[in-house]
Design a protein around this nucleic acid. Structure first.
Lengths: 336, 336
DNA sequence: GTGAAAGCGCTAACAG
DNA sequence: CTGTTAGCGCTTTCAC
């Protein structure tokens, strides 16, 4: 605990009252120019820094927002976090982060950490366990406390609050269309996250698009990345497919590796598109064409909404922002 | 600002004094069991949550630590952050993060944000600009305020505080030895971070090791990842090299791609080792052999030291922990 | 122009 | 056992 000089100390040194010092440092016009400067000099020489905790107590605002994400090592969340940080910093707010690690218990604990006045609002993406169990007590509690809250990506329909989501359905739909326009006629969907709402929306978009093209949906669900190589090799040996849409970037990279093992050239023999525009996609060989969710942007938008809400710039009804995806073209798809 | 019920509200409801309520809720033995329970029930029914800001003001402890990292999208820092979060959470602390984005100005601003009592201590890795400019005013200031501080990875010799560093010198040294044992005779060092202390240590280790093998140091410094492809192509055309040690994983991945463009087979014609054990290394093709710095562990260690310091468990002199590296072998180096 | 006093919400020594 | 009081550091009326 840093030993701090306080207003009282300065008041003693200057031979004036605490309130005079406070006003002087805050450039109140009430204080004479000469006294003001004198006090400022003393403060300077003492390395005075006003105590933020005391200020927060007085002002009932912490200029801090809480962020709860399921994991920080997943690049998507990391990028969202980056976006949040940028927007927050720009608007003079700090961020404190908690990780739920996909657990409802940790998520609830984090909400409790935030509900006690230490932040002005919360941004979060719901933990997988919570989505499955459908136990939302902690969110109801925070809503009861009037805590400004925005959910992103993984949101809860049953909870009333501001939300920012990605149009995963359309993203997958457009990716199929993109592949089809390139001439692909047998497009496979590789899904390692079929048990999340997000994975499901992507599958739905794929099915819809492929049906529109009079192709049969061809879906490979895997529950682990390690299964991909074997699963795809089987496919390559028995069917002729000319494109793969993968539900995330890791599976897309692994699909490329599997293809190479089976002597398929990318993109000549096989086009590959993944979801999520991250490092792995960028540094893969060939570099991956992906459906970008604009992760960073999602973070900025979510933070923007939250801060607007905190600062009373929004009307009562919750805002519901849907972010469109975009295809980032690289070398894993033919360039025509 | 969530409208909160306070101790006063509860006191009114229960018809007792504020301090009685406080003691009851804190299970003070001074309060009779019946009153205590009655008060707790009332608190419960009001969804009472004690105000943390007020508590912090009183206790002069925020149970929060500040983290300043140069970037969050660099996986190494992200992993360290993860380690910090784990240790902090386990010991009952929250973390608030600021990004310096490698800028001295933002770094100083972050220090200022923290110095005002909003955190109990700080963990940081120095911004590139600060390392170049050697302007350390903000750190001296925070030291003057007795702010507990631990630097990790990129540290400043001139500042007295706890430090956690990686044995980058030895890491590079061992990597060269590893390559040499595999039969490599012309090992090139690719360095995109030559202006950081870390990049310099790695280079030193490389030079030392290579000299011991009676090879001439062969160093390619680049200031941008985009330069790598051209720089290496020139090298491949004019020299015969059979191994590359890259100072991070991204440059290692790009080196592989450059090699492939020049019709070099990995690992048959060329072995590649990178620094940092991240996603890109794991999903590269071929997967990259790397020097792991145990990023997550560094975070845990740094947080552990900081919390020990905050809680007064450490003697005055600064601790200086050096973390050893380890080679993680994958497919970019020959398997003999 | 400057200062006294109240109060943000909580804790804790000290009375009763 | 319960209440009174003071105070953490700051801001802000309201007197003087």
């Amino acid at each position: 605990m840093p030993s701090k000089t306080t207003l009282k100390d300065l008041a003693n040194l200057a031979g004036v009252s605490v309130s005079t010092v406070s006003k002087a440092l805050n450039d109140s016009p009430e204080i004479g120019a000469r006294t003001r400067q004198r006090i400022k000099d003393i403060a300077e020489s003492c390395n005075y820094v006003p105590n933020n905790i005391a200020r927060s107590l007085k002002s009932r605002s912490t200029k801090t927002i809480g962020v709860i994400i399921p994991a920080i090592l997943i690049e998507f969340f990391n990028k969202v976090l980056y976006g949040i940080e940028q927007e927050a910093t720009e608007r003079g707010y700090k961020i404190v982060i908690c990780l739920s690690n996909e657990s409802s218990r940790k998520e609830a604990e984090s909400i409790n950490t935030f509900i006690n006045g230490s932040v002005d609002g919360v941004i979060l993406s719901v933990a997988e366990e919570t989505q499955k169990s459908k136990v939302y007590d902690h969110f109801e509690k925070s809503a009861k406390h009037n805590m400004p809250m925005v959910m992103f990506d993984r949101v809860l329909d049953d909870i009333t609050c501001d939300k920012v989501t990605v149009d995963d359905f359309e993203g997958a739909f457009n990716a199929v269309k993109f592949l089809s326009d390139l001439g692909s006629k047998n497009i496979l969907f590789l899904n390692p996250i079929s048990n999340t709402s997000v994975g499901q929306h992507r599958e739905d978009g794929y099915v819809k698009a492929v049906s529109g093209l009079n192709q049969e949906p061809n879906i490979v669900n895997v529950s682990h990345y390690t299964e991909i190589e074997k699963a795809l090799s089987t496919v390559f040996n028995n069917q002729k497919i000319d494109a793969i849409l993968a539900a995330d970037e890791y599976s897309a990279a692994l699909a490329q590796n599997a293809a190479r093992l089976n002597n398929l050239k990318i993109p000549q023999d096989l086009s590959v598109i993944g979801f999520t525009n991250g490092m792995v996609a960028e540094y893969a060989n060939p570099s991956l064409t992906v459906v970008s969710q604009h992760a960073e942007n999602i973070g900025k938008i979510a933070a923007g909404i939250l801060l607007d809400r905190i600062e009373g710039k929004l009307r009562a009804e919750p805002v519901n922002k849907v972010v469109k995806t975009k295809i980032v073209e690289r070398n894993s798809t033919k360039n025509i």
